[in-house]
Design a protein around this nucleic acid. Structure first.
Lengths: 126, 126
DNA sequence: TTATTGTTCTATAGTTAGTATAACAGTGTT
DNA sequence: AACACTGTTATACTAACTATAGAACAATAA
């Protein structure tokens, strides 16, 4: 697995895990239809608790990014970008843009930073 | 004051307050050199605790967005966009971009959303 | 059948968020 | 000089969140 967890970070483990999985989907290391490892096996690999992995999975399920099939497993969903998803991303993006503006970045500088991150996330292919 | 707090939100009060102040600076309702209300008076206006306001102020101070003058008050800083600030914004922006990609948004769609938010934040002038 | 799956429940320890009260020392004004 | 106001610090308490742990259940897949 490509997942790294920083145990002594200020960001919760389940959030780190969810973010790493999201990046994996964003750079197509994980593709629609792919099965995720079971909560028990992934927890074992990462040296963390089963329930922590489960919480990360449920978060991604709530966001519609993966689908948890009861008593079976978790599968990467086909991207939809529905109304709820768009609103969620906008809500998350807003304070980041505001902070960028507050430290004096111009619109073009913010766009540049965004594009740079876009390719940094996309180009993790081996 | 232009600040609204949702008391029963899942995002902490001090984070909401910090974000609102950042937006105020971003749209120039608050300009460099402007004094912020005292922690006690703002807490009274918002119906929240003094320490909660203080925590928001200290967070903005740590980010270099305002400057707390000991035993005196808080003042909006002149934007610098130093190395640390840029890194902080990038770190905050990364998971948001990744999630946008994961729900199937293209680079242009993300840029459009970003620009839309940029002007939505900027154009709160009366 | 058997092992594995997500799900649910209880329990515990540590941290964070928020409020509350009090006191201190420097600032600004009168 | 006197006085109100400032941020700062300390303690205390409740509630919620994070993370771990163990156990048990019912459905799935081999």
């Amino acid at each position: 697995m490509f997942i790294k967890i920083e145990i002594d970070s200020d960001v919760p483990i389940y959030t780190q895990l969810a973010n790493e999985l999201i990046e994996g989907i964003a750079n197509e290391s994980l593709q629609p239809g792919d099965s995720l490892p079971s909560v028990r096996s992934l927890a074992g690999d990462l040296g963390i608790n089963m329930h922590t992995v489960n919480k990360a999975y449920r978060e991604l399920d709530n966001k519609g990014i993966i689908q948890i099939i009861p008593k079976s497993g978790a599968v990467v969903s086909t991207p939809t970008s529905g109304e709820a998803s768009l609103l969620r991303v906008e809500t998350a993006m807003r304070p980041v843009i505001a902070e960028a503006m507050a430290i004096g970045l111009s619109e073009n500088e913010i766009v540049s930073m965004m594009k740079e991150l876009f390719f940094k996330i996309k180009e993790v292919r081996p």
